[in-house]
């Protein structure tokens, strides 16, 4: 990857660490988020992604390292002097103000004349399709509506970077998918940088230009969604982004003769048939026993015990009849093409 010139870098972390006592919440993290990018920070809870967001917002200060926002050192700058705005996980709307006052708040505290504030706040509410709701209190709104108010409240300030901390986490699936689409549209329309924290890998993959995968305070991989899925560098990424079978080095030794762990996606594992004979060198064959079958509508997920490892495979319910599906404790022959395997860095998983 070529170095991005400073002018186009919205947020840059240089070897940033944040320690709480002995706990390294963020450990030696370096990232550069380009201006206008939809950048996601993905990881399980406690992996340091939210702490990174809070470091950008200014709610936390780094223990070591430098954070630059548009080339300007941000460490030591309070939140109210940063050109970033945050959409909080639980929205953090002011309960004692009505919706319009909530949205106008950022403009009011900057000393902009009252009529101008309310005019712009009303426009912002229109943008999120809540023009009629200005007089209501946040407590009278549904989760999805509060989410939009929080978005309008941040965007009315015209931030150069919008920080989103698991903003869709509290919404139900349908609403979440709709909001994902709206956020994506909004990002295209505004052209500003979005930094998006989520633990939902499908959300990160579908929305982002680039994704940083966090694990235990460190970044495992920063890449485009396609590259993360197709070419995970570590077993953690392979496992966390999509479902994948990570084959440890001991088993890899038996199968490939090489002491290097690899991953294979469930959809690339096939039921072993006579199509493949021993002469084909690019095929890996294993035998195992079915432990569990889960019905998922269009597909069924089959869990097979091979040696001391579990392999997941996905079978199509449209291609196979119920009778053709394997049964629990049935012996199965599985196979996959070597070309589908992704070699991982040799490390303890």
């Amino acid at each position: 990857m070529t170095a991005i010139p400073d002018v186009f870098t919205a947020v840059e972390f240089s070897i940033v660490s944040k320690h709480y006592g002995d706990v390294r919440a963020v450990d030696n993290v370096s990232i550069a988020v380009a201006e206008g990018e939809f950048f996601s920070m993905l990881g399980p809870s406690g992996s340091g992604k939210t702490t990174c967001l809070r470091l950008i917002a200014g709610f936390e200060q780094p223990s070591i390292g430098s954070i630059k926002i548009f080339g300007k050192e941000a460490a030591g700058t309070p939140p109210y002097e940063r050109e970033v705005n945050t959409v909080f996980q639980d929205y953090a709307l002011f309960p004692h103000m009505n919706v319009l006052d909530n949205v106008a708040y950022g403009l009011r505290v900057k000393g902009i004349a009252k009529p101008e504030c309310y005019k712009r706040a009303e426009q912002a509410l229109e943008q999120v399709a809540l023009a009629e709701y200005g007089k209501r209190k946040p407590g009278e709104l549904s989760g999805g509506q509060r989410q939009r108010v929080a978005l309008a409240r941040a965007l009315v300030n015209k931030p150069r970077v919008l920080l989103l901390d698991e903003p869709l986490g509290a919404l139900d699936l349908k609403l979440r998918e709709q909001m994902q689409l709206e956020l994506k549209t909004l990002h295209k329309k505004l052209g500003i940088t979005f930094i998006y924290v989520t633990h939902d890998q499908s959300e990160a993959l579908s929305m982002s230009d680039r994704v940083a995968v966090f694990n235990r305070g460190k970044i495992e991989q920063v890449d485009t969604p396609r590259n993360l899925y197709m070419h995970p560098k570590t077993s953690f990424v392979a496992d966390f982004v999509g479902t994948s079978n990570v084959i440890n080095s001991a088993m890899a030794q038996q199968l490939t003769g090489q002491n290097q762990p690899f991953s294979i996606r469930p959809e690339h594992i096939k039921l072993g048939t006579n199509e493949f004979n021993d002469k084909q060198n690019d095929i890996i064959k294993v035998a195992g026993e079915v432990v569990d079958i889960q019905y998922h509508g269009a597909t069924s997920k089959v869990e097979v015990s091979v040696g001391n490892q579990m392999l997941f495979m996905v079978l199509s319910n449209t291609e196979l009849s119920e009778a053709e599906l394997p049964k629990i404790s049935q012996r199965l022959n599985l196979c996959w093409s070597k070309s589908r395997m992704v070699m991982l860095e040799n490390q303890a998983s």
Binding site: P79, N85, T86, A92, F94, H96, G106, R108, V109, A154
Partner: peptide, 25 residues
């Protein structure tokens, strides 16, 4: 909730403004 005070600062309110407009009410 602490995040209300953080939201206020995030929106550009100085500590005195956060106190008067959010915390005190």
């Amino acid at each position: 909730p602490t995040n209300l005070l953080q939201a206020s600062a995030d929106l550009g309110a100085k500590p005195a403004q956060t106190f008067r407009r959010v915390l005190l009410p």
